[in-house]
Amino acid sequence: MVQASSVEIAKVNKFYGPFHALKDIDLSIAPGKVTCLIGPSGSGKSTLLRCINFLEEYSSGEIRIDGQLIGYKTPGGAKMSGRDLRTMRRSIGMVFQQFNLWPHMTALENVAEGLRRVRGLSRTEAEARAAEALRKVGLGDRMANHPSRLSGGQQQRVAIARAIAMEPKLMLFDEPTSALDPELVGEVLNVMKALAAEGMTMVVVTHEMGFAAHVADRVAFMEKGELVAVDAPARILHQPEDPRIQAFLRTYHERNLF
């Protein structure tokens, strides 16, 4: 079982110039829980996720990881130092839609890089741990491959290994399977399920309603920068009360009919 973080998001707003991308977002996530963020494209899911590790600056409100404010020294105050931010980010893993592996490094080097440069481990030690993380995602036999020699599903699993090798207490996923061919989605979701079963706190932006239904503890629905509803998966996915969620699920189901 991993040590897992809590996340508390309170009254968070985000502006891009005049554009109001996040509107008074409130969301708390208990340690070890999996929360899926769903909603139409452009609704602010990625923005919210990226505010959690401060890749995106939020304009007002508070985001706390294990009670500690991220990004700012005090709510609405000055930004926290780069060093403090990096310390907080060490325990937050992130997985991107486009994998974002470093193409000039092998799978093993991709995973070992953070252990060496951030955790300060020796090369041998870092590579031993990286190998362990790669075996965990089922890539023990692909460690010497460069990303260009891996399938999309394998690349995304390397990206997950890169994150979990740092022993995070919270994992953020931004549409981790959206760039994958359909037959490769399953292998990535399985790794994520295993991670959830270990008790990792996870926030997952996804269009995989099956994953949301079976793995998530709670599903949050966003639209136009608002968090419309947060509830048990069944209550969002099967008996939504809000007409916006009904409309979204209707288009989703229509798209998946053939």
């Binding site: 980010r89 991107f96 974002n100 193409p103 890089e113 953070g114 951030v118 990206a159 890169r162 740092m166």
Partner: peptide, 23 residues
Amino acid sequence: VPHGQIEAARAIGMAEPAIVRRI
């Protein structure tokens, strides 16, 4: 250099000089 690859380094807590040198 794709911005995402720089962000991936920031997300694991790499400092800017290391990002420059390594990526």
